[in-house]
Every structure is written in C-alpha cells, then in structure tokens.
C-alpha cells in the first residue's frame, strides 16, 4: 500500500494562537480516514493547510508535507495549485453557498474540466452529463442549465460532489458534507460518497463532528482536540475500546448510549481557547483520570501497533495505565 498523503508535525499559527499543533496524519492510496472533533479542534484548518488555503496571517509549519511523492512545502504556490487542484478535491458543508449562484450547473462543472483536462465543448458537455448521472441526479440532460438556487440542498450537494470528482482526484476531502442536510438525505449522500470512493478507488478524508457518521462509514479514525491529534485508531476498536480519555468521554456523552438513563455523563469545562490554554496535557483540566504529571508535562504523540495516542496514561479497556 503506497502512502498518498503524509503529514508530519504540522502546525498552523494565527497571531500566536496554534489552531493546529503538531498534527501527524497519513492516508494510503484508496483508503478512508475519518477526522472527528468538536468545533475549534482544528480539523478543518488541517485540511485547508494541505490545500494551501490558509488565509493571512496564518503561518504553516511542518516537518513533512508529502502528497504523492511531491513535497508540498518545497513547491511554489503555482505548482502546488496544479497538484492540489487536480489530484485533491474538496466538498464543503454548505452546498448552498459553495456553488456560485451566478452560473449554471453545467458551467461550474465544466470549468474545472476545462482547466485540468481540456477537450472540446461537446466532449466536456458529455462528461458533465456522465458525472451528473454518476452522482444520482435524475435526467441529467435537463439539469445542465439549472442555477444553484433552483436545486434543493441534497441536489446541490450532489452537484458539488460531481464537481469534486470531475477530474478523477486521488484524494477527496469531505468537510462536514452532510451536516446541513436532513437525516434521510444525509444517508443518501453518505452512501453516494462511499460508493464513488470504492468505484474510483479514491482516498477519502471525511471530516465531521458526528461520531455516528464516522462509525458507519470509515475504517480509520483520527480524533482531534484543541488542534492536536489525541487518538488514531481503527473504527472497530475506537468505539468499543478507546485509548484516550477524551474519546472515551465524548462517546459516553452520546445520547444513544444513555437511552434509559435520565442524565448524560458530561465533560466538564470548555475546549481551551486563545486565552486559556493550560500547561501540560491540553485535556487535563477536563480529564477524570488526570494525575499531577498531566498538569506539568506535555504528552507526546506515540504510535504503537497502528494505534496512535497522545496521553501519558492511555486507557486499556477503560482503565488508565499508571505505572
């Protein structure tokens, strides 16, 4: 299995605030990785950094930022754009605002085709129709001239997906692709994305705050907290036997795990912001297993048996291993 994307020790800083802090992430060719975290955990910023979309005054630092044998840190902005534009695509949360309301569906999809693949007008039109039918839009020939405001949320998201896969990318990044959609439509869209991933053998990074969505779709899960990766684990293990106390607490707080109790277990406190970043482990003020060491020493991210965790005393079967 070849590594498609390799990120080592990535940091993104805004005005002295580390939105992303020492993130390691690797995605193999044709694999699905889920990134889960609450708002402000840095999950979206990580991907924007990869695409080179961090706005001023953000500063990106990384030991290694490799995409398919090319070092993204060393490339010029233009070269980088030509790689990320063709081989990496993104789907965003708000389908209504990610499409340009001034142009037709056909125009917007063929725009990407024109830049990266060329071809005549007729060829492109044929390709657009093909793409629209691939994403499950009925009667695609009739939809070419529609404007985004004439489409429902689910349909717009399908068009977004068609745009994203137009150039047959190697890596598809879906940033909360279903958060703005209804449950039944969410199920349809997730099914579509997973189906296309299989068929086209793309690698997929699915970013979401919804643990359940992750559990039902991906193989490997990365949990982020306050800009750091706190746990990396397979989805078989992480939901039954999480290693990081944060993952454990997050799972316990889910309503579906507490159907018959009258109260939900909660995580006390808030995610640290710009002004109240604690010393030591960033999670220690909210962690029920925290010891003195957690308050003083910053835990390192370590990977063993393909399980990565950033904790001094990782959990085994829910019990912290103090030694």
């Amino acid at each position: 299995m070849t590594k498609l994307l390799e990120i080592e020790n990535l940091s993104v800083e805004f005005d002295g605030f580390k939105a992303v802090d020492g993130v390691n992430l690797s995605v193999d060719e044709g694999k699905v990785v889920g990134i889960v975290g609450e708002s402000g955990s840095g999950k979206s910023v990580t991907q924007l950094a990869l695409m080179g979309l961090i706005p001023y005054p953000g500063i990106i630092k990384a030991d290694r930022l490799m995409f398919h044998n090319s070092d993204l840190m060393a490339l010029s902005a233009k070269k980088r754009r030509s790689i990320t534009g063709k081989d990496v695509s993104m789907i965003f949360q708000e389908p209504m605002t990610s499409l340009n309301p001034c142009f037709t569906v056909e125009y917007q999809i063929s725009e990407a085709l024109k830049i990266h693949e060329g071809g005549t007008r007729q060829e492109r039109r044929k390709r657009v129709i093909e793409l629209l039918s691939q994403v499950g839009i009925p009667a695609p020939e009739d939809r070419l001239g529609t404007f985004p405001h004439q489409l429902s949320g689910g349909m717009s998201q399908r068009v977004m997906i068609a745009m994203a896969i137009a150039c047959s990318p190697r890596l598809l990044i879906a940033d909360e692709p279903t958060t703005a959609l209804d449950v039944t439509i969410q199920a349809q869209i997730l099914e579509l994305i997973m189906d296309l991933q299989q068929k086209k053998n793309m690698a997929l990074v699915l970013i979401t705050h919804d643990m359940a969505v992750i559990a039902e779709t991906v193989e490997d899960v990365v949990v982020m907290y306050a800009g750091q990766v706190v746990e990396k684990n397979s989805s078989d293990r992480i939901f039954t036997n999480p290693c990081h106390p944060y993952t454990e607490a997050l799972l316990n707080a889910l309503p579906e795990r507490n159907i018959n109790s009258k109260r939900l277990p909660t995580i006390p406190g808030l995610v640290p912001g710009k002004f109240d970043r604690p010393d030591g482990c960033l999670f220690h003020p909210r962690c029920k297993h925290a010891k003195k060491m957690c308050k003083e020493v910053v835990p390192k991210y370590s990977e063993k048996n393909s399980i990565g965790v950033r904790c001094h005393f990782p959990l085994i079967n829910g019990v912290p291993q103090y030694d």
Partner: peptide, 15 residues
C-alpha cells in the same frame, strides 16, 4: 449542578 459550576469558572475574556 457541579459541572455547571466549573463552566462558570472558565471565563474567556476577549477584549
């Protein structure tokens, strides 16, 4: 309401 008491402590104060 113990948890809420802790929340109250964490006052982020932007300018």
């Amino acid at each position: 309401m113990n948890e809420t008491a802790i929340i109250a402590e964490n006052n982020i104060s932007p300018p």
